[in-house]
Simulated scan of single mutants.
Amino acid sequence: MIAKDLRSGVEQLGNMIAEAACIVPFTGAGISTECGIPDFRSPGGLWTRNRPIAFDEFVASADARAEAWRRRFAMEATFAAAKPGRGHRALASLYKAGKTPAIITQNIDNLHQASGFRVDDVIELHGNTTYARCIGCGHAYDLPWVKARFDEDGNAPDCTICDEPVKTATISFGQAMPEDAMRRATELAQQCDLFLAIGSSLVVWPAAGFPLMAKNCGAKLVIINNEPTEQDDLADLVIRHDIGETLGPFVGN
């Protein structure tokens, strides 16, 4: 059912939240746009300006690795300045109230952690861009370490332990999904009684399968997104309004 207006949608959402015992939010890029972080697919989004660098290209090409890091450092000021928005804070309020055991996210910006979620309770399907990892041994590196070496000669650094390339701790196209995150997301989707899909186009699989999984396991499904999604017909409630305005009333509740 599509909410006829914002007020009606917020009222229905509030009733569903009040009745639910276990709420699992699932967030996409749309929740972070009010924080100044552009999304990927919409007009003017990151992928309209730069073709994504696939994982196999990153591994095979020193030039691709250097370009990947150049793009990341070009975005550093944007990521560093971003603070949790109303949507992040509203979901953190549900978490602190004991309504939400954990959150599943496609986002890589660390804003759910900054809003008050424990690190272990943010299930990052696509990784995190605020630090780096060796693609071989998995050793973690902070970004200032990477930038210092990148600035020396314009080349992407290799791991000091195993000499494999160092990459942002994100999941690129063609890279294996994180097994533990996928397992935990599956368990959450199967066990909740209310699943909130927020700010996701629901077109990137396998992540887009979790709302459907929750619905098939008996949960009520709410989709909050400015644009229609392919799963709207399955949802118990669809709110096509600004995410911050929709979730703002739930901040601090």
Score class of each variant (00 low, 15 high):
3 A>D: 08
4 K>W: 04
6 L>V: 10
7 R>S: 08
12 Q>C: 08
15 N>V: 10
18 A>P: 02
19 E>G: 12
20 A>E: 09
21 A>R: 14
25 P>M: 10
27 T>N: 05
37 I>Q: 01
38 P>F: 03
39 D>L: 08
40 F>Y: 15
42 S>D: 08
43 P>S: 02
45 G>D: 10
48 T>Q: 14
51 R>G: 01
52 P>G: 08
57 E>M: 04
60 A>S: 02
62 A>S: 11
62 A>R: 12
63 D>C: 01
68 A>P: 01
69 W>K: 01
72 R>A: 10
73 F>P: 11
76 E>T: 12
79 F>L: 15
81 A>W: 06
81 A>P: 07
84 P>C: 09
85 G>P: 12
86 R>E: 14
91 L>Q: 07
91 L>E: 07
93 S>N: 09
97 A>T: 06
98 G>A: 12
105 T>A: 05
106 Q>H: 04
107 N>C: 10
108 I>A: 06
112 H>F: 07
116 G>M: 08
116 G>F: 08
117 F>D: 08
117 F>L: 11
119 V>E: 15
121 D>A: 01
123 I>Q: 02
129 T>K: 05
132 A>G: 12
133 R>C: 14
134 C>K: 04
136 G>C: 10
139 H>F: 05
140 A>E: 08
141 Y>L: 12
141 Y>E: 09
145 W>F: 07
148 A>R: 13
148 A>E: 14
148 A>K: 11
151 D>E: 15
152 E>Y: 04
155 N>R: 14
160 T>M: 05
166 V>D: 01
171 I>L: 14
172 S>R: 02
173 F>K: 01
173 F>N: 02
174 G>F: 05
179 E>V: 13
180 D>A: 11
183 R>I: 07
187 E>V: 01
189 A>L: 00
193 D>R: 09
209 G>L: 00
209 G>P: 00
212 L>Q: 12
217 C>G: 02
218 G>C: 11
222 V>Y: 11
225 N>P: 09
227 E>S: 09
233 D>G: 14
236 D>R: 11
239 I>V: 15
242 D>L: 07
242 D>P: 02
244 G>L: 12
246 T>K: 01
248 G>N: 03
250 F>G: 08
250 F>Q: 08
252 G>H: 15
